[in-house]
Design a binder for these strands. Sequence first.
DNA 1: GCTGGCACTCTGTCCGCGCGAGTGCCAGGA
DNA 2: TCCTGGCACTCGCGCGGACAGAGTGCCAGC
Lengths: 340, 340
Amino acid sequence: MAHDDRRLRVLRAIVQDYVSTNDPVGSKALAARYDLGVSPATIRNDMAVLEEEGYITQPHTSAGRVPTDKGYRFFVDRLSTVKPLSAAERRAIEKFLDGAVDLHDVLGRTVRLLAQLTRQVAVVQYPTLSRSAVRHLELVPLTPSRLLVVLITDTGRVEQRVVEVHGDAEADTVAELRTLLNAAFTGKKLAEASVEVGDLVDQAPPHLRPLVAAVSATLLETLVEPSEDRLVIGGTANLARSGALDFPGTMRPLLEALEEQVVVLRLMAEVGPSQVTVHIGGENEHEALSSASVVTVGYGSGDQALGGLGVVGPTRMDYAGNMAAVRAVARYVGHLLAES
Amino acid sequence: MAHDDRRLRVLRAIVQDYVSTNDPVGSKALAARYDLGVSPATIRNDMAVLEEEGYITQPHTSAGRVPTDKGYRFFVDRLSTVKPLSAAERRAIEKFLDGAVDLHDVLGRTVRLLAQLTRQVAVVQYPTLSRSAVRHLELVPLTPSRLLVVLITDTGRVEQRVVEVHGDAEADTVAELRTLLNAAFTGKKLAEASVEVGDLVDQAPPHLRPLVAAVSATLLETLVEPSEDRLVIGGTANLARSGALDFPGTMRPLLEALEEQVVVLRLMAEVGPSQVTVHIGGENEHEALSSASVVTVGYGSGDQALGGLGVVGPTRMDYAGNMAAVRAVARYVGHLLAES
DNA sequence: GCTGGCACTCTGTCCGCGCGAGTGCCAGGA
DNA sequence: TCCTGGCACTCGCGCGGACAGAGTGCCAGC
């Protein structure tokens, strides 16, 4: 139907106009700025239908229309066209991320880059430990009863924990233990390794068993625990930019939710690699995000995501641009981590 | 002189009143709320003098007075009395910080605690590497030409770098190298160790020399470099709370400066342990901090600070309370790091 | 040297009004 | 059947004036 088709073009125009001007958009402005081929009166009729169907709303009588969450959702799913990054942006990504010296640095640069590209708040999750493979395990005796365990993963992440052991851990005992554990764990993913711990303890020489048990337990219980996953946040200054406009009064809970990390981590848990996910306004479970949109994607080289990254901004955001930026950055970070 | 004495009491009252109400304070309110023993008219005379001397100012004619930076400075230096923490606060500190599993966790908890106690933005610096002693050096061969160097300090900090070596690094060569480097560096502070590197290379067996040189260079050049020092920031939501009031329009540059870290790190470089330092408004070099005050102190067990921590807030802040909180937290963190 | 009184100044706020933008509806035309 | 121009209506926003309140500086008296 020519009907429906035009209505969708009207919806798209409303979203685009509102995103760029932040003013409720009226029929006349629409007719003037977008070549819809019909008069304002006709557009008004279409807008009335769109409003009835819940895609747009008016803040008050005799103001223009504003997209609803449902309107944005439709726009994202059906109306937005992928916006390829400019050559300058691609170059910026490479320039920014190359030259990182370690994982912390990579993620720090990534979050700054994303914030700069999208002009939104950016979040980057540390590579999940449970899906990373163990590259090396190091043990350092601190005191006779305390052992520092350092875990190095193939994604460059380094984690350490102090383990209390009741048996005394002498230098050569520790060396034995190190050899044993490295033989058992190196190259394995922590998630896989967890099933074999029982066997490992049984097969160990008797004098090492308590040590093996203690260290393994620490590794699996505290390190695989996804709640420990960390988040790097950047670009909160972008929130202050248009914060008063886009988040009237909800800025503080939003910042609190970001610092809390839990909320965002839960979102990240759902992401798949290369499949950009968008949560719009009220679609977010958490109250503080109900007036924000979150664009996330997983990164990683293989089929499974090592972690997620994305941006958080007002529902009134440039979805096409942000989705493109998020995906491009995730892809590059994936390569970077794979080759290191 | 009874004169001067009363004038100072007036200044103190103005600061206290303005900090708690955020309203320019007039002579009448002052006379009503503080027992100064004189009439509003007299207070007005004193205020005129204080204004002439630059301690207070009025936003516009016929408004109350507001302290200037100079006024706050005088208040901090001479008028504020140390406000001991409540028992509940002391308990909160212990409860909050005990149970931290590693350094990252300690600092994360510290920053949240500080932000909660002071209701300001909190910053905590990672322990400076150059003043930490080396506990252990670990080497992990990645490929024949790449070596992962992991440095563990006595403050629990773990740092890693990938070193490119042109000679090939086989397992037993690496083992030799590990022994050699640990013998040389363990127990030493990195700053001290830097002077001996030349000797170390000379004394090494010839086949190890290029490796020793490469690894040592990396350690000293990149790890001792203070610019790499990291900062944990928290409580930015507190900025949003009264941000619009206290930082009209300057909130974004402030957030940017905090994320930039450089500005704050420069401030931290000056701190001494147990000596709380306050930078008020325009006293800060950086533009973005010119309407903010920063309360900092060093933490560490010995005579020299391992790092700094503090809070950033509006010049209109509870200096006495924040200084007490910052000092108490720093002391506790110092103990915590010393015993681990 | 302090105090009460007084005139003055200035801001923040409230109210009323007109303007403009935008809408919904309707009758006419393709 | 659908689009279009016209028209009356609604409502928020901005502007200007009036007003109340807070605060000051100054002065004469104690």
